[in-house]
């Protein structure tokens, strides 16, 4: 009797050890574009709960992540801030092109830290009552490129150009505006949005047809090919719980099509 109890305890102990190993066995290192790190942290937590896999996140500028991947960084999955970089990585044989998909579509807002500055139709842009307009670098940041498209469409670009200040990414652009150094500027809705409303200041949600869609694509990298957690994460990004989190941060969903 005593021996049997002992055995069952041993079996239980062994089982616990094994399940603990199984939980930690599959871990994937994920490179995430800086603008998506907050939702991704929530998704990773939910992913761990639902699947037992661990996603370890590392955020940075998309261009910088590209340079790291092509130089051998051990990332399994890459969530980019654009759709060009994943395509380029696939073309250069660092990633699997068949896994490339749009996990979120970014929305652009004209924003001010001043609650009375930006009207709901964005007329403030034409009125010109400001010294600086902050945008992200249009050459490198998709939101910056979209901002230029909007100003061009409104025939205001040449007029505003001398007043532009450029952040290296939308995080820095947000900083320029939130400290009041730039009175208005174009940022990602996700930066000023939580649970269905603008969190601070005033904003104009730019109509989606004023700029080409800001597709944020994810792709399975070479290093993730043999990693169960990496593959599971790619699928999980398309799941309902993930989509719900993504939308709550002010992005649109594009999967399965848009």
């Amino acid at each position: 009797m005593r021996i049997r109890v002992l055995t069952s305890q041993l079996v239980l102990l062994a089982g616990l050890t094994f399940s603990a190993v199984a939980v930690h066995a599959d871990e994937v290192l994920v490179a995430v574009a800086a603008n998506f790190i907050a939702p991704m942290e929530q998704i990773a937590a939910q992913f761990a709960k639902d699947t037992g896999h661990q996603a370890v996140l590392s955020s940075g500028a998309t261009g910088a992540i590209y340079a790291k991947i092509t130089n051998g960084a051990p990332f399994g999955v890459f969530l980019s801030a654009d759709d060009k970089t994943p395509a380029r990585l696939a073309k250069e044989n660092h990633a699997d092109a068949t896994t490339d998909f749009t996990y979120a579509i970014g929305k652009l807002v004209l924003w001010s830290a001043d609650a009375a500055k930006v009207d709901a139709a964005g007329k403030v842009l034409a009125a010109g009552q400001y010294k600086h307009v902050a945008i992200a670098n249009p050459e490198t940041a998709p939101y910056g490129k979209a901002a230029v498209e909007v100003m061009t469409k409104l025939n205001l670009y040449d007029q505003i150009k001398p007043k532009l200040v450029t952040g290296e990414n939308i995080g820095q652009t947000f900083q320029f505006i939130s400290t009041g150094n730039a009175q208005i500027g174009f940022v990602a809705l996700s930066q000023v949005y939580k649970d269905g409303k603008i969190t601070q200041g005033s904003a104009w949600l730019v109509p989606a047809d004023y700029y080409s869609p800001i597709r944020q694509n994810a792709i399975l990298l070479k290093r993730g090919n043999d990693n169960a957690a990496a593959k599971a994460l790619m699928e999980y990004l398309k799941s309902a719980p993930a989509n719900q989190i993504i939308e709550s941060f002010g992005y649109a969903i594009c999967f399965p099509s848009c």
Binding site: A61, G63, A64, Y66, A67, N137, E139, T140, E168
Partner: peptide, 11 residues
């Protein structure tokens, strides 16, 4: 230094 950073970011 900023110009170099921009070049690298833009590949």
């Amino acid at each position: 230094s900023v110009q170099i950073y921009d070049h690298v970011e833009a590949l």
